[in-house]
Write a protein that binds this DNA or RNA. Structure first.
Length: 263
DNA sequence: ATGCCCGCTTACAGCGGA
């Protein structure tokens, strides 16, 4: 059973590529980030036509997340990350997916689009770090619940030096500041398993290649899209990967899809 | 040091992304 995450950089601009990817890889759950549309612009009928039911949290022009499930409707648990009533940005969706947990029970899926934080220092970086503190609080509740849980999305954090083509090029970027990395490391220390890192301990796996400066052609990428597993799900991990070839297609997103395969 | 490219917007230039 596959759970995938894909920062699509605009659901309207990406729809043909997205439908193609769903048909080719057929994940049980597909979490999308940066849908970049208001709720009423989300192409739910296009996904239903190929067997996916969806929930989504849109915003005009920027951000926006969606959860698609193959043949079943995601049961929404949370829309928006708790902890700041003034936060209006559409970056968090949490849902139960029936039938994917042990013995036919549900699995909890968190889909997030963590703030970029550039330029740093500054208010956008402060917002990122505050968002990560709120995320840790919510994910700690999920760990305490002991339910099977998968947290995927664009974390906008390069966890280790081996997760970027060039430490020097990214040195001053918000994605790999010590404070960003520390906040991510705290999640892992709490008990979450980074699926791709666990299966690729030497690093060198990228999920993003910039549109600019020929980054794709030069393989100048880094790893910022992650899949975190609760202990129950980590025991079921059999594979994890990146659909790298999709980054090379015409009209591609600047991110490639990432996925985990659980028994 | 900045822009490169791309998607979005009551757009035709500017912003955000990473």
């Amino acid at each position: 059973m596959r759970i995938a995450s894909f920062n699509i950089n605009g659901v309207k601009a990406r729809l043909p590529r997205l439908l193609e990817w769903l048909a080719e890889t057929r994940p049980a759950v597909a979490c999308l980030q940066e849908i970049k549309t208001q709720d009423e612009g989300f192409p739910a009928a296009e996904f239903e036509a190929i067997g996916y039911r969806a929930i989504w949290h849109g915003q005009k022009g920027f951000n926006g997340v969606a959860i698609l499930a193959d043949g079943t409707a995601p049961q929404e648990v949370l829309r928006g990350l708790p902890g700041d009533p003034d936060d209006q940005q559409a970056r968090y969706l949490e849902a139960d997916i029936a039938g994917l947990g042990g013995a036919g029970s549900a699995i909890r899926v968190v889909n997030l689009y963590l703030p970029n934080g550039n330029p740093q220092p500054g208010p956008k970086f402060d917002y990122k770090l505050a968002w990560m503190r709120r995320l840790r609080a919510r994910l700690s509740e999920l760990l305490a619940s002991e339910m099977p849980c998968v947290v995927v999305g664009d974390f906008n954090v390069i966890p280790n030096d081996s997760d970027t083509w060039s430490v020097r090029a990214m040195e001053h970027d918000a994605l790999m500041q010590p404070a960003s990395r520390d906040a991510y490391a705290r999640l892992l220390h709490d008990g979450w398993t980074d699926a791709i890192a666990t299966l690729n301990p030497r690093g060198g796996v990228w999920t993003f290649w910039d549109y600019q400066a020929g980054a794709w052609q030069r393989d100048h990428g880094f790893r910022i899209d992650h899949a975190l597993l609760s202990p129950e799900c980590a025991d079921r991990l059999v594979a994890a990967g990146v659909d790298k070839a999709h980054r090379g297609r015409d009209k591609a997103s600047d991110h490639a899809p990432v996925w985990v395969e659980l028994t």
